[in-house]
């Protein structure tokens, strides 16, 4: 039983990192219908911004957090204005490729700026680095912080979409872009805001995750693909689904590693996803679905 609870906890804490990426993907997808393949790279890039502020320039932790989120937001807006705006109406394949292009640009830039500073840069945790006992189980406090952060970000954005005017506008745009235009909503602004918000989430996520994951220019892809998996399991447009999906991917990995074989850890979530999508083509947690023709 102790084995199970350790594996479960290990899975949940890793899953929280995936959830952090998945939430960003869902916020963008929810209002634009696009999957931002550069989400993992935004996560990486903002992490380095925070590192530069906090470790290199020695500024306080909150400033690093602000640097990462604001930096992320601006990065999202700039890329949207430069590239995605022109693309909003293009083919999905083209759009996917453009976000992949952005991912390459970010990765290359990060390698150029920070790539020569060491192999994996460490980032100090906000919490105490010493593991603490919770019941019978030892945990690293930063892992709890990441989990709490994921849930907090999820709640903030769920409230944003449900209660604020802009949030409602964004949802309306996603539901029916043409109708939204008819009632005077600027789709372009909605898209810009969505990309900005998605990137800002990546920034916040990066600050929470960096002490656990270390920073390196190529960290983005594995986070993106796990985050994408989590978002799809959660139904692509559901914020709570993204969190549950993320935790699920983490727990599957951990359990597969603990009970089957550690070589299965990497592949287990993907095997499961193939199965899930065959049985349930729009994700595990999607219930109310409409199909337009």
């Amino acid at each position: 039983m102790l084995l199970f609870s350790y594996l479960l906890l290990g899975g949940i804490t890793t899953g929280a990192l995936y959830a952090l990426v998945a939430i960003g993907l869902v916020v963008v997808n929810k209002s634009t219908g696009i999957i931002n393949f550069a989400q993992g790279e935004l996560f990486m890039f903002c992490g380095f911004l925070a590192w530069m502020t906090h470790v290199q320039f020695g500024l306080a932790y909150p400033l690093a957090f602000i640097a990462a989120t604001v930096g992320g937001f601006l990065l999202g807006i700039v890329t949207d204005r430069l590239a995605f705006r022109a693309l909003a109406k293009t083919d999905i394949v083209g759009l996917v490729l453009a976000t992949v292009g952005l991912a390459f640009v970010l990765r290359g830039t990060a390698r150029m700026i920070w790539g020569g500073k060491g192999d994996y840069l460490s980032f100090p945790p906000i919490t105490s680095p010493e593991p603490v006992m919770i019941g019978d189980i030892m945990v690293v406090p930063q892992q709890m912080a990441a989990l709490a952060g994921a849930i907090a970000i999820m709640l903030v954005f769920a409230a944003f979409f449900r209660f604020t005017r802009i949030g409602k506008i964004m949802r309306a745009t996603a539901d029916n872009a043409k109708a939204a235009t008819l009632v005077g909503i600027s789709i372009q602004n909605v898209y810009t805001l969505a990309f900005g918000a998605g990137a800002a989430i990546a920034g916040a996520a990066a600050v929470l995750a960096a002490p656990l994951t270390l920073l390196y220019p190529d960290m983005g892809f594995s986070f993106f693909i796990k985050g994408f998996a989590a978002a799809v399991l959660g139904g692509l447009t559901s914020l709570s689904g993204a969190v549950v999906g993320g935790l699920l991917v983490g727990v599957i990995e951990s359990m597969a590693g603990g009970y089957i074989d550690s070589s299965m850890m990497e592949v287990a979530p993907f095997l499961l996803i193939m199965l899930v999508l065959i049985i349930c083509p729009t994700g595990l947690l999607s219930l109310h679905k409409t199909r337009d023709v």
């Binding site: 084995l3 350790y6 994951t213 960290m219 951990s254 603990g258 074989d261 550690s262 990497e266």
Partner: peptide, 17 residues
């Protein structure tokens, strides 16, 4: 004889084994 991926973020399973 355990395995880890280059991007692994958790080694609970490996350590326990």
């Amino acid at each position: 004889d355990e395995e880890m991926s280059p991007d692994a973020n958790d080694a609970t399973a490996q350590v326990l084994r």
